[in-house]
């Protein structure tokens, strides 16, 4: 318990610990923003290079395909050599994959830039500002939209690869990313908590 203005308070606030956490988070977001800008640059250059190179350079001999490294399944899959034969052209699949990668990285960059601004406001002792409420709402909506949008693009790419490999009757199931949708909802709840905080802050500021 602590005394404040003649009143006994049951809560205390460890400002030193809070400032340490804020500093670490600020540095992580700064480094991430710079890193992601570099990554976006590389992706744009790569997509540009692939688009302007001749189509013939992207012929891939499927007889050379012996294993598939699936990051999604976290497994290295051995491929039946009789299953995939012939030569396929992967130029537009590469461009599409690059575009999907660019979209993912841009989404992350958008979130980190907004988060960086929010943390600056919190560091300046204005956590419950109107701008911060809007920022968290935007991040939440971005996560919600990405939960529906990114699986769509991934599905389209996978569909295109399946058709290119002429496997046969393959149905690509469309699934939403529940983790991102749940994250989006949580962040929107957080934005509403900040809005309540703003109301309490105003109430406190208007109390003499």
């Amino acid at each position: 318990m602590i005394m404040k203005g003649g009143m006994i308070m049951n809560r205390s606030f460890n400002k030193k610990y809070f400032n340490t956490i804020l500093t670490i988070t600020r540095w992580i977001t700064k480094v991430s923003v710079v890193g992601l800008f570099i990554l976006i640059g590389f992706l744009l250059i790569s997509i540009g290079v692939v688009m302007f190179l001749p189509v013939e350079l992207f012929d891939f001999n499927l007889d050379n395909l012996t294993t598939i490294d699936s990051q999604y399944l976290k497994a290295l899959i051995e491929v039946n050599p009789d299953l995939f034969t012939g030569i396929v052209n992967v130029k537009w699949q590469l461009v599409f994959a690059g575009f999907i990668g660019l979209l993912n990285v841009s989404f992350l960059q958008y979130v980190f830039i907004i988060l960086k601004k929010a943390i600056i406001d919190v560091s300046n002792e204005k956590p419950f500002s109107e701008k911060n409420i809007k920022r968290f709402n935007l991040i939440g909506i971005a996560f919600l939209v990405s939960g529906f949008l990114f699986p769509t693009f991934n599905g389209l790419l996978f569909n295109s690869i399946m058709k290119m490999l002429s496997i046969g009757d393959v149905n690509v199931r469309y699934m939403i990313n529940l983790q991102q949708i749940f994250m989006g909802l949580l962040i929107i709840v957080l934005a509403n908590i900040f809005e309540y905080g703003a109301y309490l802050q105003e109430d406190h500021d208007m109390t003499v």
Partner: peptide, 18 residues
């Protein structure tokens, strides 16, 4: 500023201590 707000009735509440 706070006392001025009190004087002009712009405050929402006043603490007993004040």
């Amino acid at each position: 500023p706070n006392l001025s707000n009190l004087k002009t009735g712009k405050v929402r509440a006043i603490r007993f201590s004040t």
